Simulated assay, not measured.
Amino acid sequence: MTTIVTTSPGFGKHGRVPERLAERGWQLIRCADPKLPPDELAGQVTRADFLVVGLVPVTSETVRNAPRLKGVLKHGVGLDNIDIAACTARGLPVTNTPGANADAVAELALGLMFALARNIPAGHASVRSGGWDRQVGTQLGGKILGIVGLGNIGRRLARLARALGMHVLAADPYPDTAFATAHGIEIVGLDDLLGRSDYVSLHVVGGTHNAGLIDAERIGKMKSGACLLNLARGEVVDLDAVADALEHNRLSGVAIDAFVTEPPDTRHRIFSHPRAVFTPHSGADTREAVENMGLMVIEDIACLLRDKLPRRCVNRADLEGEVDRGKSVTHR
């Protein structure tokens, strides 16, 4: 029997995915509880033919202690919590699900922009508490949105924003210029984007390369009164610098969906700021997106069971001995 261990809380639960798993007779072991002792997770991984990854890190020790493992599959897009080099050294294919959750994350980003523009959380809290605090907000139409990372998510958000009448700027080291031209998106440098945008939405990968991408210096370059959204990874923004900017009215608002530690330590002063909005890393949490990701994972496991490398295998070149050092993934 094929045994799948998953650290993703959503894998195998939504849409057609449970039925597809049952049809194949695969055993699914869930290890998605963040409070699960490391030794218990390690014990389950020893039984795994395939590891379906959520946000729990996959380290060299993880793969070293999994003798049956045939593949590591990310139930999502970001690969920064997977030691791809260690997997490659063990001959393990690594896959992800690019584009599966792009609509979901982009729609949440748009929703968070509305929440900031129209003071929705504060209005909700006022009415719930018996108050009637009507605050004058702003409209999104005519504003400038700066998208950092014009990948699958960034492109979808750009289309949604353009439909609202926003002007869209994008910064990306490898921009899709054909898409930008077709959709009226202006490709600019990061500093230019920060200085001109009313809203800045981050859609880049995590890891050391982008750690502290938005720090005090970069916030100082942002348009006064702009809003910042982080639906990427927690380490991409410096929370201390963001809190300072809110307190000194350099930023009008911030919306954060991803944190360095999850759940975050809410004793940080940013969590008590009235112009900060938070969601629990739920950008990809729609039934449609979770189903899409699950179906992709099942397809790739079936491919691996036929001794073939899936087309979404991110370390294909290394496994096939054709190392391509010139490529890197810079957006989500």
Rank of each mutant, 00 (worst) to 15 (best):
L55W: 03
D49P: 02
T88Q: 09
D80H: 09
P34L: 15
Q135Y: 03
I29E: 10
L112C: 05
L28P: 00
M113Q: 11
G25Y: 12
I144G: 11
N81V: 14
K35E: 13
R159T: 03
A161P: 00
L73S: 02
I29R: 06
L112H: 05
P37N: 06
Q44F: 14
C87F: 08
A22S: 15
V105F: 01
A158I: 00
V53W: 03
W132C: 03
K74A: 05
P37V: 07
P38I: 13
F50G: 00
R47K: 10
K70Y: 04
A89V: 01
V45R: 08
V58M: 13
I120V: 14
V77I: 14
A85E: 13
P98V: 09
E61T: 01
A104H: 02
R159N: 06
E23P: 00
L36H: 03
E23G: 00
L116H: 06
L79N: 02
D103C: 13
V72T: 01
W26I: 06
V105N: 03
R68S: 02
V52W: 08
P98C: 12
A32F: 09
N96Q: 06
A117R: 02
I147T: 08
G25Q: 10
P34E: 12
V53L: 10
V136P: 07
V136D: 12
T97S: 15
R47I: 07
A125G: 04
A125D: 11
G130C: 10
L110A: 08
R68G: 00
L92D: 14
A86I: 13
N119S: 15
A100Y: 13
A22H: 12
E61C: 02
L36P: 05
G99A: 10
G91Q: 12
C87G: 05
A109Q: 05
G131C: 04
E107K: 10
V52Y: 09
S60H: 04
L116K: 03
V127S: 01
P93Y: 07
R155E: 11
V105C: 04
V94T: 11
E107I: 08
Q135F: 04
G141P: 00
L28S: 03
V136L: 15
V45H: 10
A117T: 01
G76W: 07
T46E: 15
G99F: 13
R64F: 12
R118C: 09
A106V: 09
G71Y: 14
G111K: 07
P98H: 09
G111V: 10
L51Y: 06
A102D: 06
A102N: 07
P34H: 13
G146W: 06
L150A: 01
E107N: 11
L55P: 00
V148M: 08
I29H: 03
V63I: 02
A42R: 06
A161G: 01
V77D: 01
L116W: 08
A22K: 12
P34K: 13
V56F: 15
A125I: 02
G71W: 15
K70L: 10
A89C: 02
P38G: 13
I82D: 08
R155A: 07
P121Q: 14
D83T: 02
R24A: 15
V63C: 05
E40D: 04
E23N: 00
R118W: 07
T46L: 15
I82H: 02
G131L: 04
I82M: 08
A115N: 07
W26R: 04
G78Y: 10
A86M: 15
E40R: 09
